Simulated assay, not measured.
Amino acid sequence: MKPFRPILMRALCVAALAFAAAAAAGCASTPMPVLPVAETSGAHPDLRRYDDEWFDAARVGRVDILQALVAAGYPIDATTRDGYTAVILAAYRHQPDALEYLLRAGANACIGDQHGNTALMGVIFKGDTVLAERLIKTRCPIDEANKAGETALSFAALFGRVDLVPQLVARGAHLEHVDTLGRTALQIAVQQGNAATVAALENVGAQHVPGQALYNHP
């Protein structure tokens, strides 16, 4: 990760004073310039030069830097070249405080990366139940699909996240949704040979396709 730039650190001092943070005491002695202030509508175009600092702050959980840039008008839903938002990065790196700040500040948790994978899909892949439960509670459509037609429930079935299956279904996940290969979550679990996930899906009402074997062996 690149070192945070001096001008951004000076901006943090000003932001700390504004928020009356305890750490502001060390900043008060020397007046320092602040980042460009946002225009009345939209972010100052120069703020995109702080992309590296913004995304690095999300990765390592530097809420103070995220706050300073948001206060200066940085676009909270900016993406990397791979389509990653700060929400995706904070969630994937298990930075709960940064994720919570971003969500409360109005960041859009529904934005997917270049493959359509959302922050929720990312934490399900990683097995991060705590952050998955938090993201399930956002206003994002629970059956939002990536470019492979996979939903959060598909990911739970694919990676055996048994504990998340009932939560996703309770939130409204459609058991009969099919991906681009025509597979339901139950069919995915069957193909994975994961009896526990199959049972979890059956317990919430998933039905087997007639003639399909319980396990598909290579």
Rank of each mutant, 00 (worst) to 15 (best):
E202Q: 09
A105C: 02
A15C: 10
A156I: 04
T40I: 12
M9L: 15
L181K: 14
A15F: 01
V123C: 01
D46A: 15
Q187D: 11
L8W: 05
Q191R: 15
F19G: 06
C140P: 06
A185C: 10
T184A: 03
R134N: 03
A189L: 08
F125T: 12
P96V: 00
P36N: 05
A16C: 12
A152H: 05
T184Q: 04
A109R: 03
P218C: 04
A28D: 07
T184I: 00
C140F: 07
L99C: 02
L12S: 04
A72V: 06
P3W: 07
H174N: 12
R48Q: 12
A200E: 07
V70Y: 03
E100V: 11
L89W: 09
F55T: 01
H177K: 09
A213M: 09
T118S: 13
A43S: 15
L164M: 06
M32V: 14
A156H: 08
E176S: 11
G160K: 10
H217A: 13
V209I: 11
A15Q: 14
Q167P: 02
D52E: 12
R161W: 03
A38V: 02
G172H: 00
I188D: 03
Q212F: 11
G42D: 02
L120H: 01
T79N: 02
S41G: 10
H177T: 15
N117F: 13
D56E: 14
L186P: 06
T180L: 14
G112I: 01
L164I: 05
R10Q: 15
L66H: 05
P218N: 08
E150A: 10
D143I: 05
D128Y: 12
D52R: 12
R48L: 15
E202D: 08
P210H: 11
Q207E: 12
L131K: 06
L120Y: 01
G205W: 07
V190W: 04
A98E: 03
A57K: 08
E39M: 12
R5K: 13
H174D: 12
V169L: 01
H177G: 07
V178N: 03
N108S: 13
L164K: 09
A57I: 03
R10G: 09
M121K: 10
L135C: 08
R5P: 05
Q192V: 14
V162F: 01
L8G: 05
A185G: 04
Q67I: 09
T80C: 00
R161P: 02
T30V: 15
S41W: 08
E39G: 08
D77H: 01
A148W: 15
H177Q: 13
V63N: 00
D128N: 15
A90T: 10
R59T: 13
Q212W: 11
A107N: 00
E39F: 08
A18S: 09
A72P: 13
R183C: 08
D46I: 11
H217Y: 13
L186I: 10
A38N: 05
A72N: 10
N203S: 11
A107Y: 00
C110I: 06
A189Q: 07
G61T: 02
A199L: 08
L175I: 07
A145G: 04
A132K: 13
A109C: 00
D97F: 02
R10C: 11
C140L: 03
L12Y: 03
Q167S: 09
Q167R: 15
K147I: 12
T129S: 12
M9E: 15
R93E: 10
P33L: 01
V198F: 02
